[in-house]
Simulated scan of single mutants.
Amino acid sequence: MKTITAKEVETLLREGKPLNIVDVREADEVAAGKIPGAMHIPLGLIEFRMDELDKNKEYILVCRSGGRSGRAAELLEKHGYRVVNMTGGMLAWEGPVE
């Protein structure tokens, strides 16, 4: 599984790179702040909502610490999606939130 650090994601966003970020945390966690522009699909629903994702795009998956996003990445990879897990999750995120 490919990984990326929170700092690398922050740098790419600051450079204006178009990123496809999926936050797999629960709604109450996302309400406390998420990476600007991130799509929210809770881990428990990812299997049922993966058709909302485009297999031609690469997605960066985010959770609180990197565990749930890792599980989501494994599931999506099995279904042919290109995914990258953000290690450290939102605990490592120092960039802006919305």
Rank of each mutant, 00 (worst) to 15 (best):
M1H: 06
K2N: 13
K2D: 12
K2R: 12
T5P: 10
K7P: 00
E8W: 05
V9T: 13
E10T: 12
T11A: 13
T11E: 13
L12M: 13
L13K: 12
L13Y: 04
R14F: 03
E15D: 14
G16A: 08
G16S: 07
P18V: 09
L19N: 01
L19P: 02
N20I: 00
N20T: 08
N20F: 08
I21D: 07
V22P: 08
V22I: 15
D23W: 06
V24W: 03
E26G: 06
A27N: 06
A27D: 14
D28W: 15
D28I: 14
E29C: 08
V30R: 02
A31K: 15
G33K: 02
I35F: 02
I35Y: 03
G37V: 04
G37W: 05
I41Y: 02
I41L: 06
P42K: 08
G44P: 10
L45M: 15
L45C: 00
L45Q: 14
L45R: 05
F48L: 12
R49Q: 14
M50T: 02
M50G: 01
E52Q: 14
E52D: 09
E52H: 00
L53N: 07
L53P: 12
N56R: 11
K57T: 07
E58V: 11
Y59M: 04
Y59S: 07
I60L: 15
L61H: 00
L61P: 03
C63Y: 06
C63N: 07
R64V: 04
S65N: 11
S65W: 02
S65G: 14
G66K: 09
G67S: 12
G67W: 02
S69L: 10
G70I: 02
R71S: 12
R71E: 09
A72G: 09
E74M: 06
E74C: 01
E74K: 02
L76C: 05
E77C: 01
E77P: 00
K78Y: 02
K78R: 14
K78V: 02
H79Y: 15
G80C: 10
G80M: 07
R82H: 13
R82E: 12
R82C: 09
V84P: 05
V84R: 09
N85R: 10
N85D: 15
M86W: 10
M86K: 11
T87I: 14
T87W: 01
G88P: 13
G88R: 11
G89I: 12
M90A: 08
M90R: 00
M90K: 02
L91S: 12
W93H: 11
G95Y: 11
P96S: 14
P96G: 04
V97F: 02
E98R: 09
E98W: 00
